[in-house]
């Protein structure tokens, strides 16, 4: 019984959603820390970023973490889809007049839509950079490392599509912000981690996280396109 209740029950789906979600929040921090190196200009920045990219694709510990990340994304998406299907079927006849904004935040009611936008973003993002890094036709820098830096810069500085890509990335980060604004603190609630003293702090951290992390991510393509 213990096995089925920890996989199939309504509450189990919440636990898994929360655990994978929180892990993906950690991933965002790591990913952001690495990407901030794109603010370093010149040949020095290029060499450092490519060295970092090599480390991220070859280090065994990072490799394990990346597999956990892929699994988390897939699990989070499938679990979210199953929950959405179940939740839709729980109300077969809709209300004629429903004032949902009177009692809940928009993001909390639209996590599925936001998540779908994020999934599309993640897939295109991986096709643009992750695929290129692993299997694409990619040059090497002065140190002989795969030159992912040039690919990233060329992508956002592209004469015809660079602005479109930049705006698409910024809009995707807006979706990340809304998704996190509900998801971060919601994950703690789902795991039963609620306390008079600590929950207000968790909510504040969640708000700051949802604001600052996507903002920092969005600044990177904006910097590359308009300043670099």
């Amino acid at each position: 019984m213990a096995q089925s209740v920890l996989l199939k029950s309504s509450l189990a789906k919440k636990y898994w959603m929360a655990l994978t979600g929180l892990f993906l929040c950690l991933f965002l921090v790591g990913h952001l820390a690495g990407n901030l190196q794109l603010f370093i200009g010149g040949i020095e920045g290029q060499l450092q970023f490519n060295e970092y990219a090599k480390f991220m694709t070859t280090n065994p510990l990072v490799k394990i973490l990346s597999y956990v990340t892929y699994i988390s994304i897939i699990f989070h998406a499938i679990d979210g889809l199953l929950l959405t299907i179940k939740n839709k079927s729980a109300r077969p006849v809709k209300y004629h007049n429903e004032k949902a904004s009177a009692n809940s935040a928009w993001a909390s009611r639209n996590m599925g839509i936001l998540g779908t936008i994020l999934l599309v973003f993640i897939i295109t993002h991986m096709m643009n950079f992750w695929y290129e890094m692993h299997w694409g036709e990619i040059g090497v820098d002065a140190n002989g490392n795969k030159d992912l830096h040039t690919i990233v810069i060329a992508f956002f500085k592209d004469a015809s599509m660079g602005l479109v890509f930049t705006l698409a990335y910024v809009l995707s980060m807006l979706a990340v912000a809304f998704h996190l604004s509900h998801g971060f603190q919601s994950a703690f609630q789902s795991l039963g981690l609620r306390h008079e003293k600590y929950t207000p702090i968790i909510q504040k951290i969640g708000f700051a996280f949802a604001l600052l992390v996507p903002l920092a991510f969005a600044a990177i393509p904006l910097y590359i396109h308009f300043v670099y």
Binding site: S10, L83, N87, S89, A102, N103, S104, A105, M111, S186
Partner: peptide, 15 residues
């Protein structure tokens, strides 16, 4: 019974 899942919107607590 076919009830849905919790999305932590908090609407229930308000109403």
């Amino acid at each position: 019974e076919g009830f849905g899942n919790c999305s932590n919107t908090g609407a229930c607590e308000v109403e």
